[in-house]
Design a protein around this nucleic acid. Structure first.
Length: 106
DNA sequence: ATTTGCTCAGCTC
DNA sequence: GAGCTGAGCAAAT
């Protein structure tokens, strides 16, 4: 599979995440069939920051891993603004969006 | 809650 | 081709 295509697919899947919800790098990785680290790459390389809701992707433990513009501080701000609930520096479990289930359920 | 070890694409030399 | 670096993860402590 072409790397550029995988990137496109990743960005399209991001559009499906509702505001106020988040997804883990791992889940995206499993859906697309790549390693979680590659998802991180795609986010870091994103061409249209903000337009692509890359701030809705967090670690599997709910911790923010990074953000190109303004670092995790700004990322957390954005998520709070969207209504995502935090427990310390981690996103609460109940705010995780089960993207895999959405794609498999009819 | 923290630390440790493993992994893997991408970049550098 | 070898070695280092991270927008990761999971297991052990």
């Amino acid at each position: 599979m072409d790397r550029r295509v995988l990137k496109e697919i990743t960005y399209i899947l991001l559009q499906l995440i509702p505001p106020g919800r988040v997804v883990s790098y791992k889940e995206l990785a499993e859906i697309i069939g790549v390693s979680p680290r590659l998802i991180g790459r795609f986010m870091a390389e994103n061409e249209k920051p903000i337009i692509i809701p890359c701030h809705r992707v967090v670690g599997s433990d709910g911790g923010l891993r990074g953000y190109s513009l303004g670092g995790v501080g700004f990322k957390k701000k954005l998520l709070l603004l969207e209504g995502v609930g935090f427990k310390g520096d981690k996103v609460r479990r109940e705010y995780f969006f089960d993207l895999k289930k959405l794609l498999l359920d009819p």
